[in-house]
Design a protein around this nucleic acid. Structure first.
Lengths: 353, 353
DNA sequence: CTGAAAGCGCTAACAA
DNA sequence: TTGTTAGCGCTTTCAG
């Protein structure tokens, strides 16, 4: 093997078209100040020779790297992949991010970074140095990690924080968690539910709080109380079992439960089965992740769809365009929607008189 | 933005350590002929400054790009992502490929290429020119696409063909399709089945044939006939409905069916339901993809697990080591296994006397 | 509007 | 064992 050189370079094109390297470069980069005739001639040579610029060389000479780096939490991602239960967060990010990047001549590279580790900075720093991406997308919980955000800001790399509303550097993006929680709650209220339980996510994620806020807000709007109706989980199945049991142990148990993750919704379904509660007639359930898995339960779960693909696509676009207007102050919201399935139904009037 | 330069380069390290650039380079690349003391000193500077080499620069200077390119069929992949029914082929490739690459200091980049298009060569060629990967992984149906294989060979880039046994350039890899089909068939035979139907994949994929071969072989070994027991599908759900109906329309309908894809297995389940056949007691079903989805049907499907992650991991390793021994003649087999679930059971003796 | 020169960060080849 | 030189393919100055 050894030194595999570029087969056709800018030199070949320049020679073929009988112009300088610089002119070819201008054509490639769509720069102004190239006479149409010239441009055509060069383009013809490019097409003829099948020339494609090397991104390494482009990067070296100080221009863009044409790389967008998407980083995700290592442990969570690997756990999902190994569990093989159909969670498709990564796929949706690829669907939205990768395809959008490709349309603009960019590539998206995926990278897993450990949040908990004390060498986050090293891990991420190494990726940035090695890859020199033109933009970075961070997802929860990274998007709220001060070290990570700080490093990105310090290096002056445009980045998008998905699942973060904080001020500060980088583009803050959310999927409208608060509104989503309200949508779910309102849906249940319309079905006649009054005691709607909520299983919250862990404190480490701001979005856990936003979701609770949305639920509380909707409950307040309908003049329903929330006391004792909110339990906390960690997004995982086990914690969901725990929370669901606590909620359903109440004398005036909720007739509906909104869970902040698919696993916790599944756990709630499991607890309902355990107690002989019919879903949706004795208990309605709404999941806060519309992952594939929630369509395959019986009944299929009504869920809040998180528009991950659309968000990633948006992030990529903003990052690619981020050259000038550094300061996007308002968080960008790509709002998800409620997908109604079989796990929610009109509340029954039995045993309540 | 503009020209964002590397913050700390080899020069800084050289200066800090008081040595030449070349010495630093030698240390980075773990080359021999560096005195331990020297090496330590340099390494100390590297650590102190947090230096990480730029892969763009490394590539430029004629060494490796530290990039492994994994290409998949565009239409199929996007369709899967959009369908959101939990197919996790890509995730498993990432799990195996990306993590293995990372361990060795490489990155894996995903790319979608259109097989049907007449500009496959351009699409792939562009990716190769832009990225200059050190290795490429191709999956079905690309792995049997002459244009693609030809281009890769011509460019002298090491590549692995997953799902291909052909001789020729590149590392051929399979997941043991024939053996897998035999395993499934033998499993059913052990349960007392004699009329075991098979829904084959489309001709465009060699592995469709291997699977049929394995089934026929196992049937022959048990002295059971195959006539009229094989129908062809295209891996999709619709085609599965079609094939399953044909098989179950027979007077001596099969008591078990092996489907060459998860979707076709699901379709078979659907047809069974349609006809009022109980699965597994009236009809046993084996799926040829252990995607997440097959665990969520009722009953959960017995399935042949394709070790995609392991295969991708193996491919990455071989590609990274592919510098010398170009000629791996024998196909590499990473064999999958049968996962028994509720869709297969002992054959019932009713209505057969 | 076009071209020539310099250099990005790194490594291969050659010297010392 | 270490250092020096040249150059990868491209873009950025800066001249013309």
């Amino acid at each position: 093997m050894g030194r595999r050189r570029q087969s056709v370079t800018i030199k070949h094109v320049a020679a073929d078209a009988g112009v300088s390297l610089q002119t070819v470069s201008r054509v490639i980069n769509n720069e102004p100040n190239v006479r149409p005739a010239m441009k055509e001639k060069v383009q013809a040579s490019i097409d003829k020779l099948g020339y494609v610029p090397s991104i390494a060389a482009q990067r070296m000479s100080g221009s863009r790297s044409y790389i967008i780096l998407a980083i995700n939490d290592r442990d969570r991602t690997i756990a999902d992949w190994k569990a093989r239960d159909g969670r498709d967060w990564v796929d949706q990010m690829l669907l939205g991010g990768m395809l959008t990047a490709a349309e603009r001549g960019y590539r998206m590279i995926f990278e897993l970074v450990d949040t908990h580790s004390d060498h986050v900075e090293r891990e991420l720093g190494a990726a940035l140095s090695a890859l020199q991406p033109d933009g970075v997308i961070v997802t929860p919980p990274h998007s709220e990690n001060a070290q990570i955000v700080g490093l990105l800001a310090e290096r002056g790399i445009p980045f998008a924080r998905i699942g973060s509303k904080d001020d500060g550097p980088g583009i803050a993006m959310t999927m409208g968690d608060e509104v989503l929680a309200m949508k779910a709650t309102d849906h249940l209220i319309e079905l006649g539910h009054e005691r709607i339980g909520f299983i919250a996510g862990p404190d480490g994620y701001s979005l856990s709080g936003w979701r609770v806020d949305g639920w509380q807000q909707a409950m307040a709007n309908a003049d329903f109380g929330c006391e004792g109706l909110c339990e906390k989980g960690d997004f995982g199945f086990e914690s969901g079992l725990h929370a669901a049991r606590k909620l359903l142990d109440r004398d005036d148990r909720p007739t509906a439960i909104i869970a902040s993750s698919d696993q916790m919704a599944l756990a709630t379904l499991e607890v309902a089965r355990e107690r002989g509660l019919d879903v949706p007639h004795d208990l309605s359930i709404v999941s806060f992740d519309n992952t594939p898995i929630v369509r395959f339960t019986t009944p299929a779960l009504t869920a809040l769809d998180q528009p991950i693909a659309a968000t990633a696509a948006r992030a990529v676009e903003m990052l690619i365009d981020a050259r000038k207007d550094e300061s996007q102050t308002e968080p960008v919201v790509v709002e998800g929607e409620l997908v109604v399935r079989g796990s929610t139904a009109r509340v029954l009037n039995h045993g309540n008189a």
